[in-house]
Design a protein around this nucleic acid. Sequence first.
RNA 1: GCACCCAUAGUUUAACGGAUAAAACACCAGAUUCCGGUUCUGGGGCUGGGGGUUCGAUUCCCUCUGGGUGUACCA
Length: 589
Amino acid sequence: MEKLRNLIGKEVEEAFEKNGYERKYGKVTLSNRPDLCEYQCNGAMAAAREYKCAPFMISDKIAESLRENPMFESAESVKPGFLNLKLDTEYLAGYLRGMAADTERLGCETCRDPKTIMIDYGGPNVAKPLHVGHLRSAIIGESIKRIGRFMGHTMIGDVHLGDWGLQMGLIITELKERKPELVYFKEDYTGEYPKEAPFTISELEEIYPTASAKSKEDEAFKEAAMQATYELQHGRQGYEALLSHILNVSVSDLKRNYENLNVSFELWKGESDAQPYIPDMVQKMKDDGYAYISEGALVVDVKEDSDTKEIPPCMILKSDGASLYNTTDLATIVWRMQDYHPDEIIYVVDKRQELYFTQVFRCAKKTGLVEPETGLKFLGFGTMNGKDGKPFKTREGGVMRLEYLVNEINEEMYKKISDNHTVQEEEGRRTARIVALSAIKYGDLSNQAAKDYIFDVERFTSFEGNTGPYILYTIVRIKSILKKYQAEKTLPESAQILAAHSDSEKALMLEISKFNSMMESAFMDTAPHKVCAYIYDLANAFNHFYHETKILAEPDETVQAGYICLLWLTKRALEICIDVLGFEAPDKM
RNA sequence: GCACCCAUAGUUUAACGGAUAAAACACCAGAUUCCGGUUCUGGGGCUGGGGGUUCGAUUCCCUCUGGGUGUACCA
């Protein structure tokens, strides 16, 4: 369906044309004075200069010609030259009927030219538990992926594991000290390696920090770890076998954790998967004359004349010949282009990495790893802070494990729910998990991604205010009304949304009608917070309507059926939205 | 040093260059209640300072102040 604003715009543009003004002045926007009108056009003020007359004269004429138009209940020209429009209730109802007819998408058209978009988010390290720093990437990335998918694009999420580098050497070295008898450490061993990993996830999670701490104090240990890293990267069989054990154990644990967050990835690729592509890539950069030696390191210049700031060259190889973060990311682009040929790659990463990615993107473009039109987008997010405005920490000041944080909020939610009314333990726990997830995700996504935000458990888990639980509560309320209605009667075939009977009903209908344009701009701006703002307004509009309207007690069956249709549409819009945000509503709460 | 980002009500956040800057929480008042705790209604209060562009600026430009971040061999 065409967006409502454009439909209105078309009428207004024609009115401008009919009166001898250019169409371009007829652009219509949502009203920012809802007390005066629903939509407005400010074109008369802009046009006044070109036609050398008072803006009011123009808006007056336009209002006059629009008054005949059945689309509008009223068209008024105000003070300097505003054109204030109110939609005809029957026209609005017709638009909503069109939405309701498309139960899957509510009339929100998919994109005309669907793209293949890879989205790089998550970024956990193997052998290390997820901590709160991983939360934002997962939540925001997942939501953007879902919004893109809803808009008809092929979205491929890649977790991009941190599974390369010194951390692996550290684990191997520590393991060697503890269990030197393992076959993985026998250099002349040629047989099969055991299928079973020689450690569990909890051992693994303990080994890494121990090894990391040791390497800072024990020079010899660090040497050994670096040596192990080198040998691993140069194909030592036993170490490769260990790496794959580490990966398996770690990945299955990560999957479980991400599942709890309702986050999933199409690809579980890691930094190690990019390594095979490095030699050819580096060679080509040298051959093509892009890469040169500077201060011992191999670099590619990426500065541009228009730069206001100094952009250092993109380093490809360190002076000791080893690869680094940039190298891996560039080589990752190589296989992504080769295997998936995406039109765009979006990186959902901490905003502090912006400069790095500027270098990487420019380097990729310059050296032809991607095509000139391939989009490389950096979506940096801010820090999640505690109530004191400083980065979120445990009470002891350490890094908070994501699992603990989630458990804490689940517990908090369960308390709230069981305080409200008596519930079965098991069902209450399940509901608490669903609601808690909405609290966490909505709390994050309702802020602009690029900004830092304050993670306030109390506020996020509240059933009132702009929170996830409030949205869910609204959905649950609608579900319950629909259920009660169905228990008594069946909705007649002829039932349909009717012209609004009250202001609050019309306000609700207007809110619903913004669905398609909201979703489109949320995608264009990669801005999940727009979806949040929309459902919050929508939930508010519904609750106002609900307070003023007796739905189940409505005596006129046709009117009542109309209400039910409207409720269904409201619920559907809310549900689609929370789905793209990455959470769901329970049946009861 | 240089550069980038941010600055909005007591607090946390909104606002394609448009009218009286919006909401939530907190606060105050009134109503409501087996409850000082629930719910409803109403209220006060905000664009860091100074310039500029514009008919019109929270939004664009310059400058100052304050905060955050980054500045090639970590990721």
